[in-house]
Design a protein around this nucleic acid. Structure first.
Lengths: 189, 189
DNA sequence: TAACGAATTGACTAATCAGTCAATTATCGT
DNA sequence: ACGATAATTGACTGATTAGTCAATTCGTTA
């Protein structure tokens, strides 16, 4: 078998099991079995468990980076811009359950964050710029810190997508409520 | 030694290690060592690892219920009420890191949530009632669903307390911004 | 003090863990 | 077709895992 085939099969199986059960909860033997591959091949191709975990993390981050949130055009009406932005970000979380899970494992298994979390801050500059553009247009009051606005929006997106919001019967209606609220909140008067 | 002393020592050690490393990442032997107690006593007093984990969860939930968020008085000015509410809830998360961590482990190690999460919904009725009181007073517009309002507030509190908000330089200022925004968002006009 | 039950101990098991290694097989360039 | 290099295999190790159990110690009560 081609080495890439085998390496890929291992990586795929490892990704599934690591995401599902975390580092401590995943056994190399189980990965080998799931990949339909000899136990020793994991060590031959990846060295050891930690390195395989590292390769899986890199793989997940790579996949997530390809489709990271597309910023809506800033010539939209503020309300439409916010609605789009929230919808996109929530969709990103929904489309990339692996990276969401990975961040959770990283946060809870290792005290530090180190590896990831950088992912988001790369594009956060673009978000800040978009907010500033709306401030320049006078649709957002200039006294508000763009950092606070972005944080609040991200906060709504992540909790909506990831928490089990028992009080929400209709997500679309809730997001409409949030968007309308944000517009009022940001408005210059 | 009194059986309660031993049982308590085991429970305390187990709580620390389970919270720190999760179920799969914690070994019974390590718990025994940390408790300064014979390995076999864990099984004598708690049966098996899963039951010990259950006892630890019950212990953490019990502790957290004692100091659950105190609802501010509803005769406060809306702005002060919201500010207090957010501050109290954030303080609750900060004062009870074990239950926060426990919920994280529960969410990530077991796909279901089952056990906890109920914790919050018990008091959420009081929150809803408080919001309705402000609607009756005319300080919150009656067309807003109290469920959406409570969800939004909880969302801000949890992300502020638990996420590593890289864009926030001054938490107090951020919360002031949020409270002012919420007031505008909820306002009847 | 005798005796009874509960607490405690240490030795044990069978399974599973990550990782090693020599031997074998397949691939590929020449 | 040959030789080198890489992939693959299975048997192995030593450590660690959860859990058992008979023997022993301890506290209490009669």
């Amino acid at each position: 078998m081609k080495p890439l085939d085998t390496k890929d099969k291992i990586l795929k199986a490892a990704r599934q099991l690591f995401v599902e059960h975390g580092f401590a909860g995943t056994a190399m033997g189980k990965i080998a079995k799931q990949a339909g591959v000899n136990h020793s091949l994991l060590f031959h191709h990846f060295g050891n468990k930690a390195k395989l975990w590292g390769a899986v993390k890199a793989d997940i981050v790579k996949d997530a980076k390809v489709q990271s949130t597309i910023l809506p055009a800033t010539d939209l009406k503020l309300e439409d811009f916010l609605q789009q932005l929230l919808a996109n970000q929530i969709q990103f979380y929904r489309d990339n359950p692996d990276i969401v899970q990975l961040i959770s494992w990283q946060r809870i298994e290792a005290g530090n964050e180190s590896d990831i979390g950088v992912t988001l801050s790369e594009e956060s500059q673009a978000w800040l710029d978009a907010i500033k553009a709306y401030q320049a247009k006078g649709e957002i009051a200039p006294q508000h810190k763009p950092e606070y606005i972005v944080t609040l929006i991200l906060s709504i997106a992540s909790t909506t997508a990831l928490d089990n919001n028992q009080l929400i019967d209709n997500e679309e209606a809730y997001l409409e409520f949030c968007v309308a609220g944000l517009v009022k909140c940001f408005a210059a008067n």
